[in-house]
């Protein structure tokens, strides 16, 4: 983990409330796709965790949805402003388990961390199949970016206004896959857990205190004991997950 200042290079809306922020700074501690950064926002006490979408040299890309006070403040920031970030947080996805035909399933703002994962998998010589799920056409983002990487991309919308109508799990077993990686809202993760036919990894979201393992604010129960989403997670093995309700 590192604490350092990043300069905002761009902060642009991708949809009505989803923004992409590119920042320049010391990305040295970001070692795996699926990790997150924790952002100090002026006027708020707690930092806000956001997953890493991409890293290229010293440029970090974050995609976030303006839903609460913190992310709404972020959406008003402009190029040239600086942000205090804790980087290199969380375990990230394990690429070594991908096999020959990995499947990536993203839902809404769960899509961003899969981008760096897809990039790394392609770098490792695999062609990931990617299913991106959104509520409706106006919320769709990053389809073309995944295609440009060389992924086999399918988009689903709940209302059928774009791509295939339904949830990502509706098409999950259309083609064989060796391992899955997913990130999205918890109901989606549960559905993937139930419908998937292979082992896989899922990334979880929690309200966090510190983001680096000190406060036990984000603990969850797993098959192998209590884990901190911020430290032993946010990525969990399917076999380890214990749904609490």
């Amino acid at each position: 983990m590192k604490q350092s200042l990043f300069e905002i290079m761009e902060n642009t809306p991708l949809t009505r409330d989803v923004y992409r922020m590119k920042l320049r700074g010391d990305t040295g501690d970001i070692t795996r796709p699926g990790q997150f950064v924790n952002i100090r926002i002026a006027g708020l006490y707690l930092r806000r965790p956001v997953s890493v979408c991409d890293v290229e040299g010293d440029i970090l890309t974050l995609i976030y949805k303006a839903v609460g006070e913190g992310t709404r403040k972020m959406s008003g920031m402009t190029a040239g402003e600086t942000l205090d970030l804790l980087t290199g947080l969380g375990n990230g996805y394990d690429l070594s388990r991908a096999g020959d035909a990995p499947l990536l399933l993203g839902g809404g703002v769960g899509v961003p961390p899969l981008y760096l994962l897809a990039k790394e998998l392609i770098r490792a010589g695999k062609t990931p199949r990617v299913i991106l799920g959104f509520n409706t056409e106006s919320e769709v983002f990053y389809e073309n970016e995944f295609r440009a990487l060389g992924c086999d991309v399918m988009v689903t919308t709940v209302d059928g206004t774009y791509g295939t109508k339904g949830f990502v799990t509706g098409t999950i077993n259309d083609k064989p896959y060796t391992f899955f990686y997913t990130c999205g809202p918890e109901p989606m993760l549960k559905a993937v857990y139930k419908t998937s036919k292979t082992s896989g990894q899922m990334s979880f979201e929690r309200r966090m205190g510190c983001g680096f393992g000190a406060c036990m604010g984000c603990s969850c129960k797993t098959i192998t004991g209590s884990k901190r989403i911020c430290r032993e997670g946010p990525v969990m093995d399917k076999e380890d997950i214990l749904w609490e309700d």
Binding site: L44, Y45, L46, E69, G70, R206, R207, M208, G209, C215, M216, G217, C218, S219, C220, E244
Partner: peptide, 18 residues
């Protein structure tokens, strides 16, 4: 400890119920 969520933002501080 307690169920989730355990943490909340407050003006100038935070709540915890770890």
């Amino acid at each position: 400890g307690n169920a989730q969520p355990r943490i909340a933002e407050t003006p100038g501080g935070m709540l915890n119920a770890v």
